[in-house]
Design a protein around this nucleic acid. Structure first.
Lengths: 154, 154
DNA sequence: ACAAATCTATATTTCAAAATCTAGCTTTGC
DNA sequence: GCAAAGCTAGATTTTGAAATATAGATTTGT
């Protein structure tokens, strides 16, 4: 591993480094609450081989956004999930019409794509944690601008 | 008034015809709950000269959608309002860049345009109840498709 | 080796949003 | 004219989502 590799590993916000206890302290909620957000479909931490959760810096920021939505804007978990479901994933991933036709995320606006079971081929083997659809949906920022950008570029 | 006019009045879903008590029975919630939804910024019934609320058939359907979001999808009022705020009103209304620059609805994604104070000139004298942005945002339907249509046509 | 941390699953508690109620006044419609 | 319905404003009650706690097994790291 050369110096550039080391630098990139140190600055990679998506690298899973924090155990749930550390993440809990960084975000200011209990470990159980973090597990709850996962069950609700708001966040997908990586897992070690033995199923222990690992959170990245990006995950921490995502969780902080979730807290803002709850505390400052009065959303409940269903509402945050609903807002996240607005991302036009099929445009971002460039799904064909055939792909769209049998993808639950395209057909309904009730669940984010990283939660649905039946997916387009483009997402079959996707690790959602690393997918731009999942990564860029940070509902505490200006979501309308986000949607605009992604529709315009589509 | 000729036959065509009569027909159009009878079938106009936006004509305000139901007092709050009737609306309350049609939707299946108390009159107070209807007033609460109004305070939350989810619906804007017309008013008589003496400030009595009047609901149209379209209003009833809007309210039924709100109930679906609450009962079936678990949203709270803040979440429904947040979802409604996703409509790209400036695209639908064709606002100029100057208009966008001093319109709160363009700048933030926290409130629907029909709730914000500082509006674009295109909306200064708008009766929001009759505006397509307000009318078409029925969050219980496929909101993603709605956004797609409106972005594509923009 | 073993204490601390994490895992899943379930039960219980908390608390604020949502709904209901109250009061005093105005409007509506028979 | 007057009873019924609507208005605003504010207090109170309810209720279920969110958070906390518990239990027993597994993994981690010193």
């Amino acid at each position: 591993m050369n110096a550039t590799d080391i630098q990139s590993r140190l600055t990679d916000k998506t690298r899973p480094v924090f155990a749930i206890g550390v993440a809990s302290e960084l975000v200011g909620v209990s470990v159980h609450t973090l597990r709850m957000y996962e069950t609700a479909g708001l966040i997908i931490p990586q897992r070690t081989k033995s199923k222990h959760r690992l959170y990245s810096q990006a995950d921490i920021e995502r969780l902080q956004c979730i807290r803002v939505m709850i505390e400052d804007r009065g959303f409940n978990l269903a509402g945050i999930k609903g807002l996240m479901s607005m991302a036009p994933c099929w445009e971002i991933k460039g799904c064909s019409e055939a792909d769209q036709a049998h993808c639950d995320a395209f057909k309904s606006s009730f669940e984010p794509c990283w939660v649905v079971k039946t997916k387009a081929t483009a997402c079959q083997d996707e690790i959602c944690n690393e997918c731009p659809v999942y990564r860029d949906v940070t509902t505490c920022h200006n979501m309308k601008s986000y949607l605009q950008e992604h529709w315009k570029n589509a």
